[in-house]
């Protein structure tokens, strides 16, 4: 383990933190879109079935 990521303090974010922030944001956005599409699909289906 190297500790080159500990330089965070003034420079803002370390590399590991940046990667974590980026991937987390991507997962949250894609995940949200996926579930919104799923829920809308079901709602349309139910509307077709019951009006």
């Amino acid at each position: 383990m190297t500790n080159d990521t500990y330089t965070a303090e003034e420079s803002g974010m370390s590399k590991v933190e940046m990667i974590a922030a980026g991937t987390s944001a991507a997962i949250i956005v894609v995940g949200a879109i996926f579930w919104i599409i799923q829920i809308r699909g079901v709602m349309e289906m139910l509307e077709l079935a019951y009006g």
């Binding site: 974590a20 922030a21 991937t23 987390s24 944001a25 997962i27 949250i28 995940g31 949200a32």
Partner: peptide
Amino acid sequence: KSVAIASILV
């Protein structure tokens, strides 16, 4: 916190 939310979601 973002990592935690992403992890729970995935």
